[in-house]
């Protein structure tokens, strides 16, 4: 059962990723990206990371995608403005497929070398990946990095406002 779910959503995420880089229209790419991110969230659930899966859907598939779609609609692109992107497609695709093949092969081989047992998941401890477990770790062992991320967000907000502000000239 779990194996079937894994293969279905792994295939969906790869398909979504391929669609992201093939569509010419950014809106279609954004919707395909939602497919990939959502399938990855399902894989997180299979890895017993329930809290992280919820965060993934809220932040990635929610907030970040809205940001992308909002920007595309804000720019009001016409189709001729996107024509520049589709040159040498057959050549690019062939190179890409070769690289993809080698990556999968070498990733599998390297993993087999690093973990000879095959990496079968062991039974996990109580409360693994729940809101309580992750939250406890986040607010005890990793409190300083967690607070620093808020500084990062603040810097990003200030930076965005500074970049987007219209200069008088």
């Amino acid at each position: 059962m779990e194996t079937v779910v894994f293969y279905i959503f792994a295939a969906l995420s790869v398909a979504g990723a391929l669609l992201v880089i093939t569509y010419n229209n950014p809106v279609s790419s954004a919707v395909s990206l939602v497919l990939t991110l959502f399938s990855t969230a399902v894989l997180f659930v299979l890895l017993l990371a329930h809290f992280v899966a919820a965060i993934q859907i809220l932040v990635y598939a929610g907030a970040i995608m809205i940001l992308f779609l909002f920007t595309v609609m804000f720019l009001n692109l016409h189709p001729e403005a996107l024509r520049f992107d589709a040159r040498n497609m057959a050549f690019k695709v062939s190179i890409f497929l070769v690289v993809l093949l080698f990556t999968g092969y070498f990733a599998a081989m390297g993993f087999n070398k690093a973990f000879p047992g095959g990496g079968a998941p062991s039974p996990s401890p109580e409360g693994f990946g729940t809101v309580e477990g992750v939250g406890r770790l986040l607010f005890t062992g990793y409190l300083l990095p967690f607070e620093l991320t808020s500084v990062l967000i603040l810097a990003a907000i200030i930076g965005v406002v500074a970049i987007a502000k219209r200069r008088e000239s």
Binding site: E2, T3, V20, L43, L100, T103, F111, G119, P121
Partner: peptide, 18 residues
């Protein structure tokens, strides 16, 4: 028991290359 974790790493590598 489910799929071995190796599958997840290969999927991760493939998505990264894409």
């Amino acid at each position: 028991m489910g799929v071995s974790l190796e599958h997840y790493f290969v999927l991760s590598a493939v998505l990264f290359v894409i």
